[in-house]
Design a protein around this nucleic acid. Structure first.
Lengths: 236, 236
DNA sequence: CGAGCATTTGACACGTTTCAATCTCTGTGG
DNA sequence: CCACAGAGATTGAAACGTGTCAAATGCTCG
């Protein structure tokens, strides 16, 4: 098994790296935890421990609620993604969309482990740099693309992110997001998302329905959105 | 002198940390460089070395050019900010707005140095986590706030970021951004930015003119934008 | 079978963009 | 020292994309 991403590395940590055979839990102070769908993991107002979540399976969402009921979702972490909200700094909420299985690492423990393992350190830094690139891409989306292009780009991004872990099928992937959640990610109204999805369908570009996304015409979607998956790369 | 931020730490690195008195350049493979105003430091299409920039003085901008001439600026780094575009991953351009003085560190050198100095490692990780929080905030801005609130929030953010280094005056700060650049940051049109700035002026909230921003009514601006500077915190 | 949530559709309002023109400033060369 | 050039700022009018409000439909689960 390769260990070129942060998730892969910590999953095999005790076996391949630590000759003393300590468990992941012991080395990193990590715990494996499951959160039920729709549960709040870390609220934007109640700062808890300084912990890092590494998503193992399921979908989460990281968002900010604003006065007036609006919500902006920063990202929807899936397998391999990390979520780190420093308690003094965080003003976002992290919650589970589906049942979510995550590795939870106390930040001080991770910092200790990184002192002794430079590869762990490198991979963690790259992982958060990648999350940064994803946020930046979402900013480009919200700032400078219209509804059609925005949705298309995000659907392609999701496909790429899921396919890294084989979580896609031939021409699509499972996606538990509601149209409302999609709207909160893209900075649109759920009504307008609905209309735009219908346009995507009509034009034979993509389909978004009952938990499943079908990419019908990838070539056209890619050129429409100028999609370049480079920003999602992890290894190297 | 404190050394609680990445910049402060590496500036005093050779003095306080390395008993062998090696210079910063030797330890980190770092070089101090000055870029003239309006010069491109790192283009989104030409991937150069894997380097990290730490801004010492001046203003930069990190942006993405899209087909059709639109541009989305991710951030305008100032003193203390770091810019890291991994060559395999980057699709943003980094350029200097004013004359820009930066410390340039080869990523492999930094990684080596971090292996030997856990504080360096911790501070770097926090620095990029902070950049991440800034991107997220800009995403909230572009996705869910109207022009008036967007501009106001960003002006408050800039004040806070500059004041960390004493780069503000009593009720304002120097700001070299043009209205067009402001538009690219906020995902607006320069024309609409102009109109909105004029509204801000009329309402006695803030002033944006010839290189200087004046915060006229901070209280009202803060409540209007629900500004909470926590995400800009660095130390801890 | 009914309740509640997600999706869909329609008509209209509004914020922002687009296009076009004018104005102001600042630095430069005659 | 003035004239000019070019970039930035300002203003107006109209077009357009997205939001808002309201209502109906479809789906899922107890």
């Amino acid at each position: 098994m390769t260990d070129n991403t942060f998730l892969q590395f910590i999953e095999t940590y005790s076996v391949t790296r630590d000759h003393r055979k300590k468990s992941l839990r012991q080395l990193l102070g990590a715990s494996f935890r499951e959160y039920p769908a729709n549960s709040v993991i870390n609220h934007q107002r109640e700062s808890g421990d300084d912990v890092i979540y590494v998503i193992n399976s399921g979908w989460g969402k990281l968002y900010r609620d604003l006065h007036g009921g609006d919500r902006q979702t920063i990202d929807t972490p899936v397998r391999g993604d990390i979520v780190w909200q420093r308690p003094e700094t965080a003003n976002t909420t992290f919650s589970a969309i589906t049942d979510l299985y995550a590795i939870e690492i106390q930040t001080p423990s991770l910092e200790q482990a990184m002192e002794q393992d430079s590869k762990l350190s490198r991979l963690f830094i790259r992982a958060i740099a990648r999350q940064n690139a994803i946020s930046a891409e979402h900013l480009v989306n919200a700032g400078r693309r219209n509804a059609m292009t925005r949705i298309s780009h995000f659907l392609l991004e999701l496909e790429e992110r899921l396919s890294v872990h084989g979580l896609n099928t031939d021409g699509g992937y499972e996606c538990p997001l509601t149209q409302h959640e999609l709207a909160d990610i893209l900075g649109l109204t759920k009504i307008h998302v609905n209309r735009t999805l219908s346009a995507l369908r009509t034009n034979g570009l993509a389909t978004f329905k009952s938990g499943f996304v079908e990419i019908l015409d990838r070539k056209r979607l890619v050129s429409l959105t100028d999609f370049d998956k480079a920003y999602l790369r992890q290894r190297g």
